[in-house]
Design a binder for these strands. Structure first.
Lengths: 164, 164
DNA sequence: GCTGAAACGCGCGACTT
DNA sequence: AAGTCGCGCGTTTCAGC
């Protein structure tokens, strides 16, 4: 990956509808080499997928809730099942195992507080959870799928095809 | 929006590279009406954009950090500036104003703890922040851009073109 | 609002430097 | 590696039901 790949990724993170010819123009390439780079980035798994991003308001999932869970007293068996159960809910859009005070952090999207309550009941019906606390977001100030590319490790020029 | 729009959205949230003809087939429509529905969903802002989703590992942003901020003692002026400053950092991928104990919650992506430290220094160089605490994710168990569509409000059939 | 087909542009590959 | 050319597919539009 070099400077041009980085430019390509930056553009595609913003807008995946851009025609290859347009991307090519913007990065200073002609279409074929640009197309080949994009293919390679897909094969290598740098580009994972192209998705449509929907407006949460329009699909009635305005409300973001963060659930913090402490699991200190639970068994390994429980932890495994917990992880599986939580993941399966479509309302769960993010799920992290944390270091420190809180053990797990979950982001859930729902229409309103009542729906959250219903979700919470569905969840605890499937698995016993001891130490939970929920925090509601009043406003989503920023949400982006764009990862910063400033940390990318670039290969030196003239040596672009080493195996990963 | 009806049942077919919902199906279309479900498919496009998963894979925005699907050809219109393929989507049409899967929802039981032919290409033209399916294409028109997609156009309409874009015009209405239900579909906000199509983006490429990158592999965080491959672009060297493995580490997720959640920053909790309490702002009780700050002025309105400060709050405004705070919001602007934080948003501008490309490492900040999510940013919420919360209710309850914590006032703001930020998700940041960086390569490692050292990079987080550098980010943190950049941040506090730009704005004074009093009550901050950082929590590191050990593992991203789930991350999806797909919103649940189960809460969508569908219009009755035979009344498909009412204004929003 | 649907189907079918035509027109156009773009993705993709073969070949060249 | 990158560029030019061209075929075929997919998107988009249009005529008719």
């Amino acid at each position: 990956m070099d400077r041009l790949d980085k430019k390509i990724l930056r553009l595609m993170q913003e807008d995946a509808t851009l025609a290859v010819a347009d991307i090519a123009k913007k990065v200073g390439l002609s279409t074929t080499p640009c197309w080949r780079r994009i293919q390679k980035l897909e094969e290598e798994g740098v580009i994972q997928r192209r998705v449509a991003v929907l407006n949460p308001e329009k699909v009635n999932t305005r409300v973001n809730v963060f659930i913090s869970i402490r699991t200190s007293a639970h068994s390994l068996e429980w932890l495994k099942r917990f992880s599986e159960v939580v993941q399966e809910f479509p309302e769960v859009v993010e799920f992290y195992r944390m270091s420190g005070d809180v053990d797990y952090l979950i982001r859930v999207v729902v229409p309103d507080i009542a729906a959250y309550d219903a979700f919470y009941k569905k969840l605890i019906a499937k698995i016993e959870i001891r130490d939970v606390s929920s925090a509601f977001a009043m406003e989503q100030i920023k949400y982006t799928t764009q990862l910063p590319l400033d940390y990318m490790v670039l290969e030196k020029d003239g040596n672009a095809s080493a195996a990963g």
